[in-house]
């Protein structure tokens, strides 16, 4: 993948960026995330069975659907910053300051929101489902554009191959083994849902119940599935809360970084800065431009001079 065939995503960038600019924006964001150590995730969003969509309803319908999905993506991420582009028939979106939990919540929102979408390309009603592939790098080293695109795309393809209408996680640090296809029958879910201890506990409980209640025997998998479902639901609400918290923590630590930078600068110019208050003003973006600063400095000096003169005069008068 020497150069990714990017096309700009008109609804997200309002036509502001060319594909190559977008690509370099993504690369910049990734390098920033490596430098400052914040999380990023890459999502690859595909419309299930998009090829047959074109065959059935005409080629324009494809464009229409992708446009609608873009709008949905923007709406369901509540305009939190992301960089998006089209790559072939898939939408790629890079979310800075977002971790695995946040990515799951976003993906979940997109997938469920898509089910409620309806299009009519002049003719019959079309409804579609989406699959979202997630690449969530766990170390700074993994935050490289091309591998991330590849992983997200692969996750999306796998999800679609498994029937679509879902999200699929590809966690690079485990060589793709830790993929997550959330289906209740899939016991791979277990690892994500509870720790080993809990799993053991449940096993023993079920076994002992089987001994006590003969009726119960054989129904353990049913109960098990029910419990999993409940937990999955619970997890979803927690995920949403976590996502929010993650974003706020990120925000705070970004601001802290900025503050520290400013303090550092202030310390370097020792005595030149009018005070701590101004540093916070700068952090909050309410400080004035440099030209005003020079002007203010001159004004302060003028007031000081005038007062010094006043003081001298008063003193010499007293001495008379």
């Amino acid at each position: 993948m020497a150069s990714l065939p990017f096309t700009s995503l008109s609804a997200s960038d309002q036509g502001l960026f060319t594909p190559s600019e977008l690509r370099s924006l993504m690369e910049k964001e990734l390098s920033r995330s490596r430098r400052y150590g914040y999380d990023v995730v890459m999502l690859s969003i595909g419309v299930d069975r998009i090829a047959s969509l074109g065959d059935l309803y005409g080629h324009e319908s494809k464009g229409l659907v992708l446009e609608e999905i873009t709008r949905l993506l923007i709406a369901s991420t509540r305009s939190c910053d992301f960089l998006g582009c089209l790559m072939g028939d898939r939408i790629l979106a890079l979310f800075p300051h977002t971790g695995e939990t946040g990515a799951r919540a976003v993906a979940n929102r997109i997938v469920s929101a898509a089910r409620d979408l309806e299009f009519s390309a002049g003719g019959p009603q079309i409804s579609v489902t989406l699959t979202v592939g997630i690449a969530a790098p766990r170390t700074a080293k993994e935050r490289e554009l091309e591998p991330l695109v590849e992983q997200a795309t692969q996750a999306c393809q796998e999800g679609q191959a498994a029937g679509g209408d879902r999200w699929q996680l590809m966690a690079p640090s485990t060589n793709g083994h830790d993929k997550h296809a959330p289906s209740l029958k899939d016991t791979a879910d277990m690892g994500e849902l509870m720790d080993e201890m809990l799993r053991e506990k449940m096993k023993t409980v079920f076994e002992s119940m089987g001994e006590q209640l003969p009726d119960f025997a054989g129904r353990d998998s049913e109960v098990f599935a029910l419990a999993l479902k409940k937990m999955a639901e619970e997890r979803q609400t927690q995920d949403s809360k976590l996502e929010l918290l993650e974003r706020r923590i990120q925000r705070l630590s970004d601001n802290l970084g900025l503050t520290e930078e400013q303090l550092q600068r202030a310390m370097e110019m020792k005595g030149m800065d009018p005070g701590v208050a101004s540093i916070y003003q700068e952090v909050q973006g309410i400080a004035d431009g440099d030209s005003d600063k020079t002007l203010k400095k001159d004004m302060m000096a003028a007031i000081y001079e005038a007062n010094l003169e006043l003081q001298d005069k008063a003193e010499s008068e007293q001495n008379d």
Binding site: N108, P182, K229, E233, V276, Y280, V283
Partner: peptide, 30 residues
């Protein structure tokens, strides 16, 4: 995949509050 529509999250408070911190800083100087 669960199908429940996720809850709307409460909007995060966008303005960081530094008053407290800056106050402390001032008081530290006395």
């Amino acid at each position: 995949m669960t199908s429940s529509q996720p809850n709307e999250l409460p909007e995060s408070d966008d303005t960081p509050h530094f008053e407290l911190i800056s106050d402390e800083a001032e008081n530290a100087e006395g």
